[in-house]
Design a protein around this nucleic acid. Structure first.
Lengths: 191, 191
DNA sequence: GTCTATAGTCTGATAGAC
DNA sequence: GTCTATCAGACTATAGAC
C-alpha cells in the first residue's frame, strides 16, 4: 500500500475524485464510480488510498492549499489599497470555486464528512485561509471602507461567496470577476 | 398505505425527520435511524411514507411553507419603510434557520437530493419565497437604500444568510436579530 | 499497479401476522 | 398502526494471483 505519498498518479486521481464529489456529493459517490472514472477497477483504488475517507482528505487538502496559494498570489500583485485587496481576495476565491468547480468546493461543502483526525490535521490550513480573509477585512475596516463587526462581516462575505456555487451558471454572461466587483461594491461605502 | 395525508402523526414524524436530516444529512440518515427516533420499527415507517424520498419531500415542503408564512407575517407587521421590510425578512429567515435548526435548513441544503418529480412539485413554493425576497430588494433598490444588480444582490444576501447555518453558535451571545441588523447595516447606504 | 473474486455489512423496502 | 422476518441489492474493503 502506497499511502500518504505525492505521486503524480495520486494527484491525478485526487483531481478526478474532486470532480465526482462535487457532482454527486461525497456520500453518494461510490468507490466503484471513482474507480471507473479513473479507468481502473474498484479494488485497485486501495493501492493508492487507504480508504474512502483518505480520498476525501486528499481532495480537501488540495483544494484548500490551492485556494490559499492563489489568494496569496493575488494579494502579492496588489498595492496596499484595501479595496483592491478585498477585490483580489473575492476574485481569487470565486475563481477557485467557479472556474473548474473542483477541490475547493469539496473543501467547503464536505468538510463535515471528514473524520475527526483528518479534520484536526486540516484545520490549520483552513484557519490560515480564513486568517488571510480576516486580515484583509481588518484593513478595510481600519480605513472605514466597510463598517461593522469583523467576525460577522467576514462570515457574511464568505457566505455570499460560497453560496454562489449553488446558483452560478458558468455558461451565463457573468464572470467571477463581475461577481467579485458587484459584491465589493455592495458592501463598501462610497469614499 | 396512508400516503399523502396530513395526519398529526405524520406531521410529528416529519418534524423528527427534519432534525435528523440536519444533524446527519439526508444520505447518511437511514430508515432505521428515523424509525428509532420515532419510537417505531423501520418497517412501520412505510405505513406513513411511500419511501425515503417522500420523507424528504415532506420535510422540505414543511420547511418552505413555514418560512414563507413567517416571512409574510413579518412583512405584514411592517410599515412601508424599505429598510424595515428588509430587516424583517432577514430576521424571519434567520429565525427559521437558527432557532430550532429544522425543516428550512433541510429545504436549503438537501434540495438537490429530491427526485425530479418532487423538485418540480415543490419549485412553486420555493419560487414564491424567493419572489418575496426580490420584491423587498426591489423596493430597497428603488429608493437607493442599496445599489447594484437586483439578481446578484438577492443571491448574495441569501448566501450570507444561508451560510450562517455553518458557523452560528446558538449558545453564543448573538441572536438572529443581531445578525439581521448587522447584515442590513452592511449592505445599506447611509441615508 | 492492476486484476478477479468475494467477504462481511448495511441499505431501502416488502409481506403478512396481530 | 405496529410488529417480525426477510429479501435483494449495494456498499467498503481485503486477499492473493499476475
Amino acid at each position: 500500500m502506497n499511502v500518504m505519498n505525492d505521486s503524480p498518479r495520486r494527484k491525478e486521481l485526487t483531481r478526478l475524485a474532486a470532480q465526482l464529489f462535487v457532482q454527486e456529493g461525497f456520500d453518494r459517490t461510490t468507490v466503484r464510480m471513482l474507480a471507473q472514472e479513473m479507468g481502473i477497477k474498484s479494488g485497485s483504488l486501495f493501492h493508492h488510498f487507504r480508504d474512502k475517507q483518505e480520498i476525501l482528505a486528499a481532495v480537501i487538502e488540495e483544494g484548500t492549499e490551492n485556494a490559499l496559494g492563489l489568494a496569496r498570489a493575488a494579494l502579492d500583485q496588489c498595492d496596499r489599497n484595501p479595496e483592491a485587496r478585498l477585490h483580489a481576495m473575492a476574485r481569487a476565491h470565486l475563481e477557485t470555486l467557479l472556474t473548474d468547480r473542483n477541490a475547493h468546493v469539496v473543501a467547503l461543502y464536505e468538510w463535515r464528512r471528514l473524520d475527526p483526525e483528518a479534520r484536526s490535521h486540516l484545520s490549520h490550513l483552513r484557519d490560515a485561509y480564513e486568517a488571510l480573509w480576516e486580515e484583509v477585512i481588518d484593513e478595510a475596516l481600519a480605513v472605514g471602507l466597510i463598517q461593522g463587526d469583523r467576525f460577522l462581516v467576514s462570515r457574511f462575505v464568505m457566505g455570499a461567496l460560497n453560496w454562489t456555487v449553488r446558483w452560478y451558471d458558468p455558461l451565463g454572461e457573468r464572470s467571477p470577476e463581475d461577481l467579485a466587483r458587484e459584491l465589493i461594491a455592495m458592501i463598501t461605502r462610497p469614499a
